[in-house]
Simulated scan of single mutants.
Amino acid sequence: MKLRPSATTFCSRSRPPHNLRVLLLLSLLLAALVPTTTGQSHVKDPYLEMRCVCLNSVSGIHPNGISTLELIRPGAHCDKVELIATLKVGKKICLDPTALGVKKIVMKLLEGS
């Protein structure tokens, strides 16, 4: 069994073997598909995961505990509106956007800003 290719099989002027070209193309494709890790644990783009972010929703919370609200519109990733509240302690929770108490909180926060 020969481990070295012969000069007729592969030389510097000839094209690389077909398998090598396919492997190179596959590795470039995989490198483009896999996101790079930058140390951030939370994905900013909700469309990247292609699924709903909120699995469970809370129907009421005290508005003084909320620091920011994030609204994610329905799309290909999820068929419902998602409302994510970041609390002042740093925790993120999902709010039910159809609940009357949550609608009042959103209106109160919009009036304040």
Rank of each mutant, 00 (worst) to 15 (best):
T37C: 12
N56E: 08
L83A: 02
H42F: 03
Q40D: 15
L71I: 15
M50V: 15
V81E: 11
S59C: 06
G39F: 01
I66S: 01
I66Y: 01
I61S: 07
T68W: 02
H42S: 12
A85S: 01
G39C: 06
P63L: 03
E49V: 10
T68F: 08
C54E: 05
V34K: 13
P35G: 14
T36D: 05
S57V: 10
C54R: 02
Q40G: 09
D79F: 11
P46K: 08
G39V: 07
E82N: 05
T38V: 07
R73V: 08
S59M: 07
H77I: 01
P74A: 03
T37S: 13
G39Q: 09
M50Y: 12
T36E: 11
L69N: 01
K80P: 00
N56C: 01
V58M: 14
H77A: 15
G65N: 08
N56F: 02
R73N: 10
T68Y: 11
P74W: 06
G65E: 12
D79L: 13
L71Y: 13
Q40F: 01
V58Y: 08
I66C: 03
T37E: 14
K80E: 08
L71F: 12
L48H: 15
L48A: 15
T38M: 04
N56Q: 05
L55N: 06
V53I: 10
V43K: 05
I72P: 00
E82S: 08
A85P: 00
L69W: 00
G39K: 06
C52R: 03
T86L: 09
T37F: 09
I61C: 03
G75P: 04
G65S: 13
L55G: 08
H42C: 07
C52Q: 05
S59A: 11
K80Y: 05
I66A: 00
S59R: 13
R51Y: 02
R51A: 12
G60I: 02
I72H: 13
I84D: 04
L69I: 11
H42V: 08
H42M: 07
Q40E: 13
V43T: 13
C52G: 13
E49S: 07
R51V: 08
G65I: 02
T38E: 05
V81A: 04
A76E: 15
R51G: 04
Y47N: 15
S41P: 02
A76F: 14
G60R: 12
P46W: 04
I84P: 00
D45C: 10
I66E: 00
H42T: 10
T36M: 10
Q40V: 12
Y47K: 15
A85E: 00
P35L: 10
E82G: 01
V53P: 00
T68G: 02
T36Y: 03
S59E: 12
S41V: 13
S41G: 10
G75Y: 07
L55I: 02
P74I: 06
E82P: 01
T36F: 02
S57W: 01
L69Y: 01
H77F: 06
A85G: 02
P63H: 06
C78D: 03
D79C: 03
S67T: 09
G39S: 05
T86S: 14
P63F: 00
T86Q: 14
L71W: 03
T37P: 02
Y47E: 14
K44G: 12
S57N: 08
H77W: 04
G65M: 06
T86R: 15
P74G: 06
E49F: 03
